[in-house]
């Protein structure tokens, strides 16, 4: 568990700090980029922090229909997100709690958070929230094989089922197998967008007119629950984005270069989402499965190509 460069405790603190403090900042960047492209000044970068802090101070108004499942949804979102951030390698090569098979753990934690958020939505009895939950769960389920085929490709290439060593092997020998990893990256980008309900799958900007997936699932959340839901969504953006950034970072050097490179990668990713959301519109619903099939195919081809490449 201990790495050569960083002692375990420092690594743990670094991961915790990133997981707790960085995610809302990504939302800030996205909002800023969208505003700038539209010719507006936009909210300050730390606006999401302010929103979350304000919501945390408020009290909760609950629907009379709801039960414990409603409270558990946002909490599960935060807890599973933090769990993933503990096993996913961020800046360095290792993660504080990495173990062999943690790829599987990550996928099943995502599954758990999805399960709980579907329950929380159905718990209100609001048909709008049920609709959002159905779409969210269905699309994520279709995206899951793509995520796993990509992980399979990385595991096959590196011989590891733990994300830390696997990404390290990928990063240090990108040149050997760039073709397959570009395909995996393409597939994972689609998975990333659908897992976080961004354009072209869902438009998080317009609240009820356009947003049909993630935002509608939060209609009845208030106070700290809403803060958890927003923070949890940004945390999910961070951890799934980390997968994309780590597969792109080609070299591995000393930690004081690796961590800034990682943050730079995240900022670029947020910039990319902001630009994408400025130029694209939401896709028609019936087209969504086609794009997800494209993601599965890209990852499958990436996986198959690896068998042809020299290891």
């Amino acid at each position: 568990m201990l790495t050569a460069e960083l002692p375990f405790l420092a690594l743990l603190l670094a991961h915790l700090a990133v997981a707790i403090f960085v995610p809302p900042f990504l939302f800030g960047i996205i909002a800023k980029v969208k505003a700038l492209v539209a010719g507006r000044k936009g909210p300050p970068l730390i606006q999401s922090y302010r929103n979350i802090a304000k919501l945390l101070k408020k009290q909760i108004v609950l629907s009379m229909t709801t039960t414990w499942a409603f409270l558990a949804g946002p909490i599960a979102l935060v807890v599973t997100g933090l769990g993933i951030s503990m096993v996913i390698p961020m800046g360095g090569t290792e993660s504080p709690f990495g173990f062999s098979g943690d790829m599987i753990f990550v996928a099943y934690l995502l599954g758990m958070s999805r399960f709980m958020s579907v329950l929380a939505s159905l718990d209100t009895g609001n048909s709008f929230e049920g609709l959002g939950a159905a779409r969210d769960a269905t699309w994520s389920a279709l995206a899951e094989p793509a995520l796993f085929l990509g992980m399979g490709a990385i595991a096959f290439f590196s011989g590891h089922t733990s994300l830390g060593p696997a990404f390290f092997a990928v990063g240090s020998t990108w040149g050997n197998a760039s073709g397959p990893f570009i395909l995996v990256l393409a597939g994972w980008s689609i998975v990333f967008l659908v897992e976080n309900s961004r354009i072209p799958f869902d438009d998080p900007a317009g609240h009820l007119e356009l947003a049909m997936v993630h935002e509608v699932m939060l209609l009845d959340h208030s106070g700290p629950l809403r803060a958890f839901a927003i923070y949890g969504a940004s945390l999910k953006l961070l951890v799934t984005g980390t997968l994309l950034v780590r597969i792109c970072l080609p070299i591995k050097s000393v930690w004081w270069l690796d961590w800034p490179a990682y943050f730079g990668g995240l900022a670029l990713l947020a910039l990319f989402i902001g630009l994408l959301e400025s130029v694209l519109a939401r896709m028609r619903l019936i087209r969504v499965p086609q794009l997800l099939v494209a993601a599965i195919l890209a990852c499958t081809f990436g996986f198959l190509l690896l068998f042809l490449e020299p290891k």
């Binding site: 408020k58 009290q59 909760i60 108004v61 609950l62 629907s63 009379m64 229909t65 709801t66 409270l71 558990a72 909490i75 599960a76 935060v78 807890v79 599973t80 933090l82 769990g83 209100t124 009895g125 609001n126 048909s127 709008f128 209609l219 009845d220 106070g223 700290p224 629950l225 958890f228």
Partner: peptide
């Protein structure tokens, strides 16, 4: 993770003040 979840649950449970019908769109 389970302990973290239990802790958050306990915190959230304390801040509930009011019950209202589900928002009916």
């Amino acid at each position: 993770l389970v302990f973290l979840g239990a802790f958050l649950w306990w915190r959230v449970k304390k801040t509930v003040i009011r019950h209202q019908p589900t928002w009916d769109c």
